[in-house]
Design a protein around this nucleic acid. Structure first.
Length: 379
RNA sequence: GCGAUUGUGGUGAAGUGGUUAACACAUCUGAUUGUGGUUCAGACAUUCGAGGGUUCGAUUCCCUUCAGUCGCC
């Protein structure tokens, strides 16, 4: 018995996008959904109460980071991640595979796992599929990820083929090591870079292991958007319709809409909260770099069409001042707004799917930014 | 009043008798996609306190002047 269940409720007649519900041990959530990222058991600057208030469902946390600090055994001792951070909604943990790829300059990938040095003090570390699952079991998230290798784009076909085959073997090992599949759903991660044949092979290999959900990894690593959309379009008819599909690390507004159209149910991304901390917000009229001098005397809200806490109470001029002075309240307000914006965008996407008009919604949304091309940068 | 010393962009400062006057911070623009609040990229002194002189050429040498700092009466 799987810990989660995906229920496909409606398919958009205009685009084929999926509206559904994801039932987890900590609540049921409508999809497609955006999951805010809280790497170190907190969405930076936001409290769990804030997240609840803005309607966040599942949030992400991270195996690698929590393993190093404060340690998964400590989290287990605290009663698990939900209790530790006072979040009674869904949690998903990433496996650490991506961090090995993105944070460590020195790493040696072997069949049994990866040797690398941590990003804090350079200590030698070793992470394997079994070890990652063990940590994730201790953390206790509702949805957990297989330990994968995230190859760069570009990489040779030969390299990526070896890589996905190893990642599939790792996925199988993780499945065997998994202690409580009835409480935590383990997802396999489809890799394959930009090669459609390898993406297909990766998906089919993982599907033969019958995971309760499938992640699509290794995208948004610097490739053109078109490459990503091609991969999604290819995988869409291959992946099972009765399981959730999770596109990892993607979350610019245009990619969220395009991903939904291409059959994705779940997204996560640090983009919104990261650019928030650097003084940029997403608005219904496009990106606004609130740090810019032109907003010094702009006493209107961040987004005139937004009714979030930040927009209802504070002006661009005030927020710009706070951000310029590196006051923490400033980046809290921008983080709040961007997270709200992305959650709200997905709400609109779901409504559009239910009304069979996601294609129209996409056109309207893109037009507002002056985008008429799915491959445009957007944000 | 006398003596010494220093004057380089918003700030702190390098530097040289000879094409675009280091660097840092600040400022101004971009960027950031399974998160170190990080990091990266670019812009920013027609000009070296002011005036005069020497020189082919002076921010650099000389004179005057102004301003600051320290010391002495």
């Amino acid at each position: 018995m799987s810990a989660i269940r995906y229920e496909l409720i409606h398919t958009c007649k205009q685009t084929g996008a999926r509206y559904g519900k994801l039932h987890t041990p900590h609540g049921t959530y409508e999809t497609p959904m955006f999951m805010p990222v809280g790497t170190l058991a907190t969405v930076k600057t936001l409290s769990p109460e804030d997240l609840k208030e803005m309607g966040a469902g599942i949030i992400l946390s991270n195996t690698y980071h929590l393993w190093l600090r404060p340690g998964d055994d400590l989290v287990k001792e605290a009663g698990g991640l939900h209790k530790f951070m006072n979040w009674d909604q869904g949690i998903l943990t990433d496996s650490g595979g991506f961090q090995v790829f993105s944070l460590s300059k020195f790493r040696r990938i072997e069949e049994e796992g990866v040797y690398f040095r941590n990003h804090i003090n350079g200590d030698k570390l070793f992470l394997s599929p079994e070890k990652a699952i063990q940590i994730e079991n201790n953390l206790g998230a509702d949805i957990i990820m297989s330990f994968d290798e995230c190859p760069p784009i570009p990489a040779t076909h030969e390299y990526v083929k070896d890589s996905i085959e190893r990642t599939s073997r790792w996925a199988e090992r993780g499945l065997e090591a998994h202690a409580n599949p009835d409480k935590q759903a383990l997802f396999g991660i489809v890799q394959g870079g930009e090669y459609l044949d390898l993406r297909e092979q990766s998906a089919k290999d993982l599907m033969s292991l019958d995971f309760p959900g499938y992640s699509i990894g290794g995208l948004s690593v610097g490739e053109p958007k078109e490459t990503m959309y091609n991969v999604l379009a290819h995988l869409n008819p291959i992946l099972p319709t009765n399981k959730p599909r999770y596109l990892m690390g993607v979350g610019s507004p245009d990619a969220l809409i395009m991903g939904s159209i291409l059959g994705v149910d779940m997204f996560d991304c640090v983009l919104g909260t990261r650019i928030a901390r650097n003084g940029t917000v997403m608005t219904s009229n496009g990106r606004v770099v609130i740090k810019n001098a032109k907003y010094a005397r702009d006493f209107g809200p961040l987004d005139e069409n937004c009714d979030c806490y930040a927009c209802k109470n504070y002006s661009r001029a005030y927020i710009r001042h706070l951000v310029k002075c590196e006051e923490t309240f400033g980046i809290r307000l921008t983080s709040y707004h961007n997270t709200y914006f992305l959650l709200n965008l997905m709400k609109q996407v779901r409504e559009a799917i239910k009304n069979d008009r996601l294609g129209d919604f996409k056109e309207e949304f893109f037009a507002k930014y002056g985008l008429n091309d799915a491959n445009s940068r957007g944000f």
